[in-house]
Design a protein around this nucleic acid. Structure first.
Length: 529
RNA sequence: GCGUCUGUAGCUCAGUUGGAUAGAGCAUUAGCUUCCGAAGCUAAAGGUCAGAAGUUCGAAUCUUCUCAGGCGCUCCA
């Protein structure tokens, strides 16, 4: 509908000003103010007033004079210079059949230019189970991968495994010291604590002792296997499937770190300082320590160097606490000659967990944290997905568990699913409504009009959400639509003696859109609750 | 101190590339069950969009400054 009006306007503007091209300024917007009796408006005459230095009302007058008449679309000029458009109910209500007949409601999100895109997320150190702090990035990374895929891009979801360096050494010592008291080589304070350390130790004890495994790499491999059994529990249960697990250690197996650093050293971007090799980044950053070890930064550059070569676009989903690292990695990649526009770092702000208004501690010390799997068990997949996605990623998120498990209107997940289930019940009652005659123009009460307006916004909203990678727009939209429906349901009875089948088609469209939206964000649509 | 995210109703948050009288939910108050599921609905009340200045026909939105909060500023990963 918007496109039809835009075309109408475009032609009129061109007729009015044949010598100039103003098409980039044209914009049709929805009327949101409740006091205005119109559906769409344009501010083109105000924009042109600035350029042409004439009165906007005069401009609007001229444009309207050149506007073709289309059935059911009315237009008029309002004070500062808006041109308002009103669409007749008959035409507006068509959205119901458009939705009901559509085979794929997301088809207009397809890109004309598919890219090969790598999305790396979670990538938590394999030194303990995933905790709730990892949850938001996990859900977000998973969903934007899905959005990119819907756009038609070829996506690869990747988990970067830090299986090299000090953290993993500490982990191995922490576990082996549980098996052999004499093993401890580092300070006890540095050891990892937590029940999982004991559990893993017990699990592998027999194997280590039986085969008398002393080789570090062999120990590492056994322990990593066990750690990933733990880490994968919530990942699998949340139906997150990684296409690729990339091991940091593989960079060393193939001397890739050395190669990349040599390449950097040959440029003018590095210098020696006190035995260390530094990169001129946002400020001098260490690549090789004075003891000869590579820093995490150096290996990470080698890793990103690979990804830059293999993909058209790479996305890193990081916690916002790593934001200071972004300029560094970009500077490094630039020095290696890469086009850093290909790299998008999505920073996810922290989520705070509350239980009955009290903040739940998330510190990782001494196993004093809430495991993601515990949270998942408590509130379920649907609530986890919804609550982590319902806010803009740049927004700090406060998340109260008592709401997530409540079964009433407070809980938006239930509210939306309940709307779906209510519609399901009615549709089951009327059965073969497709065969019945119906006239959409009979839908004209305020509740029906409100739903139809919301439905009309569906395509635009979902497109913005999927293309702009903004999942929270979907959750907000679904809430609004559910609200419209519940209000309708309470005020208008559908299962009367004489059923108005256009009403049935209306709620069928609502249900189809709700299902599409919930499917999109990985939430179930139960037929009864 | 530097960087970065944020500041909208008592609370949690929306707010469409700058548009008309800023919106929801929760909480509060007052109502609604002979009727498709009350897991719901209707209404009332609630605002200096942190503050100031600027840009212009027009600012919650853009610019600058100030204030407040989160996070980060290791030869850690």
């Amino acid at each position: 509908m918007k496109n039809i009006i835009k075309k109408l306007l475009k032609e009129a503007v061109k007729k009015t000003y044949p010598d100039q091209d103003f098409s980039s300024l044209l914009e049709i917007q929805n009327v949101t103010a409740k006091n205005i009796q119109a559906d769409y408006f344009t501010n083109i005459s105000m924009k042109l007033a600035k350029i042409l230095k004439t009165n906007p009302i005069e401009i609007a007058d001229k444009i309207i004079g050149n506007m073709n008449n289309i059935d059911d679309i009315k237009f008029n000029i309002v004070k500062p210079g808006y041109i308002n458009f009103s669409v007749g109910d008959g035409k507006k209500n068509n959205i119901i059949s458009i939705i009901n007949k559509s085979e794929n409601l997301l088809s207009d999100c397809k890109t004309a230019d598919p890219k090969k895109i790598n999305i790396e997320f979670i990538s938590a150190n394999p030194t303990g189970p995933l905790h709730v702090g990892h949850g938001r990035g996990a859900i977000y990374g998973n969903i934007i991968s899905k959005f990119l895929k819907i756009q038609g891009h070829h996506t690869v979801k990747e988990y970067y495994v830090n299986d090299y360096g000090n953290q993993i050494k500490k982990l191995i010592e922490s576990i082996l010291s549980k098996i052999d008291d004499n093993y401890i080589k580092i300070k006890e304070d540095d050891l990892y604590q937590g029940d999982y350390i004991e559990t893993v130790a017990k699990t592998i004890e027999e194997e280590i002792k039986k085969k008398d495994i002393k080789d570090f790499n062999a120990q590492r491999s056994i322990i990593l296997d066990e750690m990933f059994k733990i880490i994968n529990v919530p990942i699998n249960n949340l139906n997150i499937i990684f296409d690729k697990w990339f091991y940091e250690s593989s960079l060393f197996d193939e001397n890739l770190v050395e190669k990349v650093i040599k390449k950097l050293e040959a440029t003018e971007h590095t210098f020696r300082d006190d035995g260390a090799l530094m990169l001129k980044a946002d400020e001098p950053r260490v690549l090789i320590k004075s003891n000869g070890d590579y820093t995490y930064f150096a290996t990470d550059l080698a890793y990103h160097d690979l990804k830059m070569k293999d993909y058209d676009r790479i996305i890193d989903v990081w916690g916002a606490d790593h934001h200071g690292y972004v300029p560094r990695i970009k500077a490094g990649l630039r020095a290696l000659g890469h086009n850093i526009d290909k790299l998008d770092v999505h920073l996810i702000q922290f989520a705070n967990l509350f239980r009955d208004g009290k903040k739940v501690s998330m510190s990782t010390r001494k196993g004093d944290f809430v495991e993601l799997e515990n949270l998942r068990n408590e509130i379920g997949n649907d609530a986890i997905n919804f609550f982590y996605l319902t806010k803009n990623k740049d927004q700090h998120l406060d998340f109260d568990l008592s709401i997530a498990i409540s079964q009433n209107k407070n809980n938006p997940v239930y509210y939306i699913q309940y709307a779906y289930a209510r519609i399901e019940k009615i549709l089951n009652e009327v059965k073969d409504y497709h065969k019945e005659e119906y006239d959409l123009s009979s839908l004209d009460n305020i509740y029906e009009k409100e739903i139809i307006t919301t439905l009309s916004n569906f395509h635009e909203t979902i497109k913005k959400s999927i293309i702009g990678l903004q999942p929270h727009l979907v959750t907000n939209y679904l809430l609004k639509l559910s609200q419209d429906f519940h209000s309708y349901y309470a005020n208008v009875k559908i299962l009367n003696k004489d059923i108005n089948y256009s009403q049935v088609h209306l709620i069928a469209a609502v249900q189809k859109v709700i299902k599409c939206g919930l499917d999109l964000i990985n939430i179930d649509t139960p037929k009864e609750m």
